[in-house]
Design a protein around this nucleic acid. Structure first.
Ligand SMILES: [Mn+2]
Ligand SMILES: [Mn+2]
Ligand SMILES: [Mn+2]
Ligand SMILES: [Mn+2]
Lengths: 217, 217
DNA sequence: TTAATTTTTTAGATAAGCCTAAAAATATAT
DNA sequence: ATATATTTTTAGGCTTATCTAAAAAATTAA
């Protein structure tokens, strides 16, 4: 039986693998988990004992097939609950994460599958992140960062990379939301800021903003 | 901040006070919680420290106003989640308790109030137990046990005292459900078993069964 | 290729929540 | 009132998940 802490470590490792290549360092996990490296070493031994990760001292870790499946399952629950909170309980997309962090640990196969059905088998969560299926498969969308679009290119907003409350609130303020059409009207070579059009309104955004918005061309 | 364990103890104490008078003994709590008396003593000290219970060594415990409110709030969450599982996710009434035991610990004011609204502010859970409001008030229904009805008396089934899966499954088998009309056709003085009519069908039930069904006359 | 730096692991503590066994207090029976 | 039985608390351990400080290994720089 998995403890909450073990589940959180698995999820952290999964997320790190998602954005980097090769073995995952103790320090990387410590940073992601907001703990100390020594705590990570302890946990990593336990997870390795349970064959959820491959672990070679000093060499980093990697999820096993079983570990990957478990992590995907936690993420599946997290994201389905986020959909539930937004679609059924009128939460805004910047309010859901903390509650989902709790709900993702609820153990009940039936619960999560019924929830999935109740929500109409959603493919993405409120931030545009894909929802793994029961087998842990995640659809791979060909989304690109808004920052990669050049002058004149168009797309539809499908996700955000940064899901922090402050960033999401900024997007709300600018009325930038998932599903909206966006066009790059101009791009400033000096700082890569761009002038965009959304909702028939035109305004400037910095590269930092553009680097955290996914669009489908 | 409350731990899950602290919450479970509060709830246990609340439930015991509900069915008995006066101070609550260490052993009673140990039995309810399925732990040892020594563990209870430890926890009782901690809850007393936090002023959630009054505790006099060797004299038993009693919830403070604050403790009572907290316990009622956990029970509120438990029962609202049970309603959700049955009403929205097609769980049966014998499947919901264990999942609700987990869900009751999720911390989010907004979540529980929105859930309440989403469910249409239900007054009772799937077992007929009343759902406390935000202030911890529980409606006091004038329900009586079916066993107290005499020959010829009629009522409507409004709740069950025993929510064990085995009892609920027995009721399902006999098609005895909340909201059904019931009439005591005959009562055997020797063992207090009774012949009843539900769903236009007539059959016998033992006193033990009748003692676990609440009816409204 | 040594020396300095960084990363990782180990050693030893701490807190929560549980346990068993023994001691102390309370309740019951003779 | 004293002995016996029951209940409750205390004492001492164990496990999980943390931490700090020190040691060991690996990496980087000179
Ligand atoms: Mn999230
Ligand atoms: Mn998300
Ligand atoms: Mn229940
Ligand atoms: Mn119930």
């Amino acid at each position: 039986m998995m403890t909450f802490s073990e589940e959180n470590y698995l999820k952290a490792i999964y997320h790190i693998s998602d954005r980097s290549e090769g073995d995952i360092s103790t320090n990387a996990i410590a940073e992601q988990m907001n703990t100390k490296a020594s705590s990570v070493t302890d946990m990593v031994k336990k997870l390795s004992e349970k064959e959820l990760i491959h672990y070679k001292p000093y060499k980093g870790v990697e999820l096993t097939q079983e570990g990957k499946l478990m992590a995907a399952n936690i993420i599946r629950k997290h994201r389905l609950w986020e959909v539930f909170l937004v679609e059924k309980l009128n939460f805004t997309w910047d309010e859901v994460h903390d509650v989902a962090e709790q709900l993702e640990h609820i153990r009940s196969e039936k619960l999560i599958n019924q929830l999935d059905a109740f929500l109409g088998f959603p493919k993405r969560d409120p931030h545009g992140d894909p929802i793994p299926d029961k087998e842990g498969n995640i659809s791979n969308y060909a989304d690109v960062l808004l920052a990669t679009l050049g002058k004149g290119e168009k797309g539809i907003i499908v996700g955000v990379k940064d899901s922090s409350s402050s960033f999401l609130k900024y997007l709300d303020k600018q009325k930038i939301a998932l599903g909206k059409k966006i066009k790059v009207l101009d791009k400033e070579p000096f700082d890569n800021s761009m002038k965009i059009r959304v909702n028939k309104e035109e305004f400037m955004i910095s590269q930092q903003i553009a680097n955290n918005i996914y669009v489908k061309k």
